[in-house]
């Protein structure tokens, strides 16, 4: 097997390259903003998240625990087959929904019209939502293949900055950071929303 020797060789090359002019690594100065001016869930953050998600062509609907069921119904309007992850709160699950058991193949998922999930955290500054494959968010494939993703974001999950967002997620889980629906700018740098990922992203912002 040659990989062992390649490993030794590359590491030896690196050490040789550095030994000619050794430099002590300097602790980087993190002079940028690591926490926002607003605390998680602040109304200003909900407004900003809404504005920035909308700017990138996601739809955002506000809901309260009382209105949630009707808001979700509206968000799923026109879809026939709805999939939900196994750990979604029971009161969110539409009557007709199918609960993912991990057994559906990609081709079978392609026949699903919409998926409804929770999220892990969101950042207002960039309009970003993170899903981490927890039971209320599901394995990665289910938020990828169906053409509509309805994602419930609880107000308390909304932080302001990217550093705050990263500090709230577990790097060991498979993470997907979502900022609006799938998009491309590959033809003449004109932005077109909706390519391979879900073409419709509906965020339901749930406040208490």
């Amino acid at each position: 097997m040659t990989t062992g020797s390649a490993r030794d060789e590359v590491l030896a090359r690196i050490r040789h390259a550095l030994s000619a002019s050794p430099t002590e690594p300097i602790e980087p100065v993190r002079g940028y903003r690591r926490t926002g001016q607003y605390s998680p869930g602040a109304p200003q953050l909900l407004d900003r998240l809404t504005e920035r998600l909308t700017d990138y062509r996601a739809a955002v609907h506000a809901a309260t625990p009382r209105t949630l069921v009707s808001v979700l119904e509206a968000a799923l309007d026109g879809t026939r087959r709805v999939l939900v992850p196994p750990g979604l709160p029971a009161e969110w699950i539409p009557a007709s929904a199918v609960i993912d058991d991990g057994g559906m193949s990609p081709a079978e998922l392609d026949a699903v019209d919409a998926v409804l999930t929770a999220c892990t955290a969101a950042a207002a500054d960039t309009g970003t939502i993170v899903v981490d494959a927890s039971p209320d968010q599901g394995r990665r494939a289910i938020t990828l293949i169906p053409d509509r993703h309805v994602c419930v974001v609880r107000a308390a999950q909304v932080v302001q900055t990217v550093p705050e967002l990263l500090s709230r997620v577990d790097p060991h889980k498979p993470l997907t950071f979502i900022s609006g629906p799938s998009a491309t700018s590959d033809i003449e740098l004109r932005r077109v929303e909706g390519v391979h990922g879900p073409r419709t992203l509906i965020v339901v912002l749930l406040s208490d």
Binding site: Y56, G127, H172, K173, P174, L175, T176, P181, S185
Partner: peptide, 21 residues
């Protein structure tokens, strides 16, 4: 790169996750 606040998708993974991916 694209002049966006954040790109639509960023994926991260560490090794393999049972039952996912």
């Amino acid at each position: 790169s694209t002049g966006e606040r954040m790109n639509p998708y960023t994926s991260t993974w560490s090794g393999v996750t049972a039952g996912d991916g």
